[in-house]
Amino acid sequence: MSEQARQQAAQRGQWRRLPLIDSPRLRWGLAIGAVVYLFLALASVEVNWERVAEGAGRAVNFLGAFMQPDFVSRYDDIVAGLLESLTMTLTSTVLGVLLAIPVGLGAARNISPLPIYFVCRAIIAVSRTFQEIIIAILFVVMFGFGPFAGMITLAFATIGFMAKLLAEDIEDLDWRQVEAVRATGASWWQTMNHAVQPQVMPRLIGLSMYRLDINFRESSVIGIVGAGGIGATLNTSLSRYEYDTSAAILLIIIAIVLLCEYSSSHVRRWTQ
């Protein structure tokens, strides 16, 4: 309906909301497309209802287990897995952040030469595209089972995450401050230290804390493919249907993530 027609209709008291998409053909096309897709997608979901009915009892057991989590009977496994996860988290974050700094500097278009820029951006792209668990599979093959492969995996993922954000920070930092420091005759290193570092440092610390939190969450799954950590313990308990132990592990994970978030918000306030 034209603008004028809508005004005349409104004058007579007839008014409908403006459609979100102007062209009726596109509007109906999208709607029908969505319905067809939904139909095809739902049709391709095969559900074994007998198996689901059988599992319903387990679901109840599992919910019950949350009421009575069992920290005790697999105490040693839980502690060992947890310690491994925590150590992996810490070392990988430290290593990852340290390595992300040169990569991030290299990936910032305004301070690095073109060839280095492309190499660093490629590293970032690869690290960000693949799930941690896929990278973990490869590193487990290379470095053998255990937390070392897990640590390398998480460090690699950290590099992609941190370097991209760091590079973007550097790309839009306040250039006048850099020039002011340069104008005093400072060398490249001095410029970095006095003009770039103060501008990006607070966010860098905040992001590192955040990445610590992500790394912990990830460390709880890469154990599934043998890269160490609490994931292996969790996987075992689930496949043995020891839901009370699984519930205990999940509760611990939630508690640690909460703790991480709480403390990182404090650290962020403290550094800014």
């Binding site: 709880s220 799954v221 699984s246």
Partner: peptide
């Protein structure tokens, strides 16, 4: 806090 893989492990034991 719980990774989708963990949710999946859990649901596979329940739903198959």
């Amino acid at each position: 806090s719980i990774n989708s893989l963990i949710w999946a492990m859990l649901l596979v034991t329940i739903l198959g």
